[in-house]
Amino acid sequence: MNTPAIDITNLSKTYGPTGAPAVDDVSLAIQPGTVFGFLGPNGAGKTTTIKIAAGLLTATSGGVRLNGFDVRTRRAAAMSQLGAVLEGSRNVYWTLSAWQNLVYFGRLKGMRKAAARSRAADLLTELDLWDRRHEKVGGFSRGMQQKVAIAAALVADPPVVLLDEPTLGLDVAATRTVKNWIATLSADQGKTILLTTHQLDMVEELCDRVAVIRDGRVIADQPTTELLSRFRRRDTYEIRVEGGPDQLPLLPGGFTAVRDGDGTTITGDVADPQQVYALVDRLRERRVVLRSLTQVQPGLEDVFMTLMKEPRHV
């Protein structure tokens, strides 16, 4: 096993002497080249964790290492490993042009001017912003501004990238652009990406591994496929029939019926498929006309919602 690109160890943060912990004993080891989805409801501790990892906030206990460099004790070396897009912030100067921003942030990261200019040119070309490089960022659309923010985070070509809600407020097209870029950064450039977002379809598509945090504690941390399959032990079936629910036989436990236009949809969450077959037989006996029978695979959103409802987890 390699040295984790992001190594969070027993991290805790409490604001004030009597406050509840915003982050409580969080440990995550994120391997190089991984796209890591960090999920949780608002106020769960995602941004606090990210800010500690970025050295913007001091932990009450525990620590974070970026490619082996402790953020607290070897800050300069750790910051050389890092680029970040932070949630709800402009991240770049709107009064400056895209070009000026990238050169400024490149030099802020310690690059020489010529290197910063060369890299800025590459990034702006890659993002289709080259023709508008001398326009002020304040005049750009939200999607373009976010592109500049991500480019600024990547200008020094850091191996570790923290993306805190990078698609917040973006339209469908801009979200797709950001999503494609994240995929490219990981697949082609081997960057380690810690991604937080409420767009779970994006996490399911992009992330190799997912951790879920609730009330400051990590309640799940698994490869995405394993996390999904863990919740596939109980399968969800959807049976669509003609007519209203009043014609149905008494449904066994675990099944619910809801009117769906001129028909009814019966949904069941069962451990054994035989329960479904038995129900179908009973529907036939009652001469209920079946329209469809489908097995619904739980997506990450279903997993997330289930985790949020459960009292305790792994």
Binding site: K51, A54, G55, L56, R75, A76, A77, M79, S80, L82, G83, A84, L86, G88, S89, R90, N91, V92, Y93, F105, L108, K109, G110, A152
Partner: peptide, 10 residues
Amino acid sequence: GVLEQTYLTP
């Protein structure tokens, strides 16, 4: 919100 970004420097 740009200030935090300017802190991500060595």
